[in-house]
Amino acid sequence: MQLSAEDAARSLAAIDASRAAMRSAVRANRGHWHLWLWGLIWIAMAMLAEFRGEAGSRLFPWLVLPGVLVSFMIGASQARRIRAVTIDRRFVGVLAAVILFGIAAPLVLLRGPVSGQALFAYCGLVAMLCYVVAGIWFDVYLLWLGVAMAALILVGLFVFPAIFWWWIAVFGGGPLLAAGFYVRYWVP
């Protein structure tokens, strides 16, 4: 099969155009909506705890449960356009173990009274462990996001307990929002 240089250049240009069209579709299908949603939820939870104390903390489930539902709906909507062929069984197994540990550990290890900050930090660390697991299997940015956020949560808990909730709003919700912008606009 013979081809002139002009025809080859035209074909390569067509490939670039087609790839660009699909790249923008893939970008729109990434996890930025989830990251923005959970960034806002983290900020809202931190501000509720900061300004309304114990009463504010009791409202956390009313943010988290709708958040899970909305995340599920976003995932289902995205899967209509581009979906994963198979869910990796190892990934599901590891994620199940992480979640099981997340539920069992406080029952076994934290029998005594625990501060609201420590409990929030613990739940945040389990969530970040899930990000790390997802990062290993799917997209490495999630791994680094999980590691960085876990470190920031621990710094807030042990170094800045007096401003913990402000810390979580800025360095918990903030990185999630920033990561959303990163995957939407910067990742090629």
């Binding site: 067509a14 087609s18 790839r19 699909m22 790249r23 581009i82 198979t86």
Partner: peptide, 12 residues
């Protein structure tokens, strides 16, 4: 060109 831009486990 479009399909090879997706991940190895993705379908469109």
């Amino acid at each position: 060109a479009a399909l090879t831009n997706l991940g190895p486990r993705e379908q469109v």
